[in-house]
């Protein structure tokens, strides 16, 4: 019987073509990561400007120059918080996806974490200096990974539930307690004595996991607006 022949050349050619298609795929993936990093960079720069403006307005409002001029602050505040929360959430998702630009994503994450803490700080100052404009509730939310915090996912959905309804009346600052690159987080954890997760600081008071009903109760006590009260009353049920 004749010997069978194989075409070695074809095995190699098929490998090269397959590898090339793979390389094109990887290249596009890499391109996308670049676009994402650029986007967040751009976004961050804009937000930083917004933040500086906010800070300056607050300082001016507090100074003798423009006493009790709280009007413009609120508007800027609302835009800023919306952008910040949206981008932070996306950033977390893309960070998990990132294959090559891990380092850049980590730096971005640090920037956004700082921006959040900054903003939380300003929102506290605002409550003191412009109380009539500061009709919002702030929640600092410390989360961790599955292993350390199996109920964090559930807590996040409950927070989202109220956020979607109360919108700018509820400010949630979600901080990754595992993000060791940013020492400020450690500082906050120690200050509020948080050693189990999820950890929530609502207007300065510490809580652990809160169910939809419990959180509704707490929010109801703080909300004055009648139409919004309905929402948290319903959430309590």
């Amino acid at each position: 019987m004749d010997k069978r022949r194989i075409k070695k050349r074809r095995y190699i050619a098929a490998f090269i073509i397959t590898a090339s298609i793979f390389a094109i795929g990887l290249f596009f993936g890499f391109l996308m990561e670049n676009i994402r990093v650029d986007y967040f960079q751009q976004q961050y720069e804009n937000q930083e400007l917004d933040f500086r403006s906010l800070q300056l307005q607050h300082q001016l409002a507090n100074s003798e120059l423009l006493e009790n001029q709280c009007g413009g602050i609120r508007e800027l505040f609302d835009i800023y918080i919306k952008e910040l929360e949206n981008t932070r959430e996306r950033l977390d998702v893309y960070n998990k996806d990132a294959q090559i630009k891990k380092e850049e994503f980590n730096i971005m994450k640090r920037k956004y974490t700082l921006a959040q803490i900054n903003f939380w700080y300003v929102s506290n100052l605002l409550k003191e200096s412009c109380p009539q404009e500061a009709d919002f509730i702030t929640i600092l939310y410390f989360y961790s990974d599955e292993k350390e915090c199996p109920r964090c996912n559930e807590q996040a959905t409950i927070l989202d539930f109220y956020k979607l309804k109360l919108k700018e009346k509820l400010l949630i600052f979600a901080l990754d307690s595992q993000f060791k690159e940013e020492p400020t987080i450690e500082l906050l954890l120690e200050t509020y004595d948080i050693n189990s997760f999820p950890g929530l600081i609502i207007d300065g008071k510490k809580y652990n996991f809160l169910t939809r009903e419990e959180l509704g109760e707490i929010l109801c006590n703080k909300i004055e607006d009648e139409s919004l009260k309905e929402i948290c009353e319903k959430g309590k049920e």
Partner: peptide
């Protein structure tokens, strides 16, 4: 209705997974 009220198309492009799109496309 809650998600609809908060729907955003801001990230539609960034959300694309180009690597998978190329591979699945092939």
């Amino acid at each position: 209705s809650d998600s609809w009220a908060n729907f955003t198309t801001q990230f539609w492009f960034l959300n694309l997974n180009l690597k998978s799109i190329v591979m699945i496309g092939v």
